[in-house]
Design a binder for these strands. Structure first.
Ligand SMILES: [Mn+2]
Ligand SMILES: [Mn+2]
Ligand SMILES: [Mn+2]
Ligand SMILES: [Mn+2]
Lengths: 217, 217
DNA sequence: CTCAATATTTAGGCAAAGCTAATAATTTTT
DNA sequence: AAAAATTATTAGCTTTGCCTAAATATTGAG
């Protein structure tokens, strides 16, 4: 039906439009996918041709209903496969993303459904991200970044925005994972870096790091 | 490393060279992959460039050592995934081939090894085909076609040459599966069709069918 | 409000993979 | 041993998807 490349664009646009409002810009897509802006322009033209996105020259793209449905189906597959790899095949949570990037493009309705059943219809993937159901419903949890907390606030880690292996390994080293309790001890004015308490240790986190950690207060 | 298309060619050549001796012809590859001879010629030139096959114009191709290793790795993945689909995800044996055609191209050494362990290192896939081990070793079982048996001979089904859904459904209807005992009751001279006994029933099988059923006497 | 900086699109290339039609080599038939 | 039939290769075109460099539109600073 759709090519891997097309699916990657749909997924990227889906994720980006959660963050921004209005159209998703050519440059944000190209940054997200490590490609060049010119390639993105060409790609979104093809997607618009197929009615998967609305595209206004110079003003970015937005997914159509069909485009969003398909993007959600890809996200569902990605997260189900990540769950499979961690829960059944002894992968670490920092090893699954690249493989899931490939597996998410396998086309078989039955495969997705049976995998879902086999895994016991999980609601969240190993990184704490919600898994859309077969109809594309996804629990809209209001996400708060750790960087948004104030001095003295406490919270529990609910997810991470960067699925890269280096970041996840870094978190593991600091003993930060899903469900970890954190307390903001101090925030440096000049670089917004944070001192947080995790169990009995105090650790320093850069703004870059705290921007990528989601918490629930 | 290698593209899906390249892997499909390697696998096709591997299977074809088991049957013929000497070089594998352009036309046999194109028939196997449902493509045109001209496309095959171009593809084998690219494969030869990468030292995956030896190619002599007009005289077909043969896999190099590297080419064979890679082909076996793809066959290993195909058969492991088929086993996974049938053993763990409730697929029927006639539904798995198309999906495995996609899954066999997923690139992750760890994934293959963990899947193998998860499945209990199976030796055969759901169709009775042997699964190569991580080093590419594959038990060379001497295959005999049902069509090669004589009147009065008995045998046990060990595998099938055609993995297509229609053929496998046909076999299921006749109650023929792996391990089924058959006895040759009669062979028609003019079309080589066979009457065989399966349990207490006698069924008629065309030469086309008996050519695709492997037995052990 | 104008001009420079930034973002985006267009133009022009390239490689992979496929196709059809034309050509050339091999094999089979007379 | 030719001629005919079959098989394989080459030539020329197409689409997808990506790139760089050039052109153009938008935006933001003064
Ligand atoms: Mn991921
Ligand atoms: Mn994830
Ligand atoms: Mn198969
Ligand atoms: Mn099989």
């Amino acid at each position: 039906m759709f090519s891997q490349s097309e699916e990657n664009y749909l997924k990227a646009i889906f994720h980006l439009q959660q963050e921004m409002d209005g159209g998703v810009s050519t440059s944000s897509i190209s940054a997200h996918l490590n490609s060049k802006a010119a390639s993105v322009t060409e790609a979104v033209k093809r997607l618009a041709e197929k009615n998967l996105v609305d595209y206004q020259k110079y003003y970015g793209v937005q997914l159509t209903e069909t485009g969003k449905e398909h993007a959600l189906a890809v996200v569902r597959k990605h997260r189900l496969w990540e769950s499979f790899l961690v829960d059944r095949l002894n992968f670490n949570w920092d090893e699954v993303h690249e493989v899931a990037e490939q597996l998410e493009h396998i086309k078989s309705h039955k495969l997705v459904e049976e995998l879902d059943i086999f895994l016991g219809r999980p609601a969240y993937d190993p990184h704490g991200d919600p898994i859309p159901d077969a109809k594309g419903n996804i629990p809209e949890i209001p996400k708060k970044k750790l960087s948004q907390l104030q001095k003295g606030d406490r919270g529990t880690c609910k997810g991470f925005n960067d699925a890269s292996s280096p970041f996840l390994k870094y978190l593991a080293k600091l003993q930060i994972g899903l469900g970890t309790s954190v307390e903001v001890i101090n925030i440096e004015k000049f670089d917004e870096s944070m001192t947080v308490r995790i169990e009995d240790n105090e650790v320093q986190l850069s703004k870059t790091a705290t921007d990528n950690i989601y918490v629930e207060q």
